[in-house]
């Protein structure tokens, strides 16, 4: 009996020791257009003096978050799948529980969902198909969903729809982002949607709804619009 109590106490002290040895890092994902002070959804932004744009949906997956120190992997988040949804304020902040002694100088993560997860059957949490980020006519996650309107688009209601996804060759759309970052308790990831939207011709390309060459091209363009501070 005494041995059991001792073991239990030892276990509890270990648990509290582990808890003490962790620190919390807030990873904030901030999609913005021109300015971070305006809400990305339902705000009309000027593209130039005559053209404007408005977003109704800004959703994307951030997955496989890793912290690096001197180019060596120092920490990796378990079960790392996060749906960032501009309509859900809370979803923009990811809490990372990392060892207190861990120093890091860069961060890596994916925009999108890896191919094995795409084939793993039905999953829950942020990966639940009710989140509206899973295709139904064929299997696979939508990595990035951007919907809205712009006078530049000559479609019904001037609507644009970008559902970027695809996990099979030749249209793999997951992209790994690697950026230096300061060792701090807050990491801010900025997603510059103005830079993205103006990097291609919106008048010509305004509906991408399946895994294809345009989805690959736009997924690649988006990687250049991500900065970490």
């Amino acid at each position: 009996m005494r041995i059991l109590i001792c073991l239990l106490l030892l276990l509890l002290s270990e648990v509290s020791l582990v808890a003490q040895q962790e620190k919390l890092v807030q990873l904030k994902i901030i999609p913005f257009f021109s300015t971070t002070s305006a809400s990305i959804l339902d705000t009309t932004f000027q593209l130039n003096t005559s053209d404007s744009i408005r977003f109704e949906t800004v959703k994307f997956y951030v997955s496989a978050i890793e912290l690096f120190s001197h180019s060596q992997k120092a920490w990796k988040e378990k079960n790392s799948f996060h749906l960032i949804d501009a309509a859900q304020q809370k979803s923009n902040t990811i809490l990372l529980n990392i060892p207190k002694t861990l120093d890091f100088d860069s961060i890596r993560f994916n925009i999108g969902i890896d191919s094995s997860t795409n084939s793993a059957g039905v999953l829950g949490g942020d990966l639940d198909p009710t989140k509206g980020m899973y295709w139904t006519w064929q299997s696979g996650y939508i990595n990035v969903k951007l919907e809205g309107t712009s006078n530049l688009v000559h479609s019904p209601n001037h609507a644009f729809e970008f559902h970027l996804g695809g996990y099979m060759a030749p249209f793999e759309t997951i992209r790994n982002i690697s950026r230096p970052c300061a060792d701090s308790n807050e990491i801010k990831v900025y997603v510059d949607l103005k830079q993205f939207i103006t990097a291609f011709n919106l008048q010509e390309t305004h509906h991408v709804m399946s895994p294809n060459a345009d989805a690959v091209k736009l997924s690649e363009l988006l990687t250049h619009c991500i900065s970490v501070k």
Binding site: V122, P129, T130, G132, T136
Partner: peptide
């Protein structure tokens, strides 16, 4: 088109000439 039996039912559920429903609303 479907890579796993567990996600198969999504296809007819969301097809406009089959069940024309959404998984969100079914839930």
């Amino acid at each position: 088109a479907v890579n796993n039996i567990e996600v198969q039912a999504l296809a007819p559920m969301h097809n406009s000439v089959e069940m024309d429903e959404t998984i969100e609303h079914v839930v």
